[in-house]
Design a protein around this nucleic acid. Structure first.
Lengths: 119, 119
DNA sequence: TTATATACATAAGAAACTTGGGTATAAATT
DNA sequence: AATTTATACCCAAGTTTCTTATGTATATAA
């Protein structure tokens, strides 16, 4: 690829791990590039996961035992599929409720009128 | 104070500046310690802004020209009051919509069922 | 044949935290 | 009387998590 030079996308900081884990909970197995594309399509191009952020994050989650990998050849190209371990499955719920509760608090700070939506 | 040894509180990452600016939009002027207490009470003790995060953030916002300060003596103790500059007032809206839109995208990634709430 | 898309990876630097100090006054506990 | 807690500011070292910039390789589109 070309180097994206994105400027629209900045703040993720801490939520990337949760995003990865959640997508893998819904999808059984995914490879790195697929994750970037999924996020892009879910946000209509607004959030772009850079490779420099994604791959280290995947490696870290694997090192922590939350993900396992299996490598597969597809059209002479190597794909590295990731899926949740048992520990990983537990972590998804933990990370999700942590993040959702944080977002809730954030709304209460930033918008005094805010009431929890359809979540 | 004692050193908090909190473990409940971790992820803020990038939203602190927005929190500061928004609180100052609502309050005309506040001092640092007051901001930590306000956040604590708005979140029922769940989010604690550490001093090590807050003061550098305030100094940075001041250096960027978004905040001005005035020092005041209260009961022999020094307080440093912060308020928004004109640039700061513009930045609040920008930072707020950036964060709200980010949270929206995050919800769409993490919860496919999610619909925008009462925001 | 050159650029774009797919697919992986690493490394340097920046940004934004945490953790642990330090200083000082006032009020509350023991 | 002495210690702790609360109020109020500050800084520095270290860590985590990004961005930005590379590098490698194959397949497809212009």
């Amino acid at each position: 690829m070309y180097r994206m030079h994105m400027s629209t996308n900045n703040l993720i900081k801490g939520s990337l791990q949760t995003i990865i884990l959640k997508l893998l909970e819904e999808n059984e197995r995914m490879y790195g590039y697929e994750i970037t594309q999924r996020v892009k399509e879910l946000t209509e191009g607004e959030i772009k996961i850079t490779e420099g952020a994604l791959y280290p994050a995947l490696h870290k989650l694997e090192a922590e035992g939350l993900l396992t990998t299996e490598i597969q050849q597809v059209d002479n190209r190597v794909r590295k599929y990731y899926s949740l371990t048992k520990d990983g499955q537990k972590e998804v719920s933990a990370k999700m409720s942590e993040l959702q509760s944080f977002v809730g608090h954030l709304q209460r700070i930033l918008d005094p009128e805010w009431k929890p939506g359809l979540a």
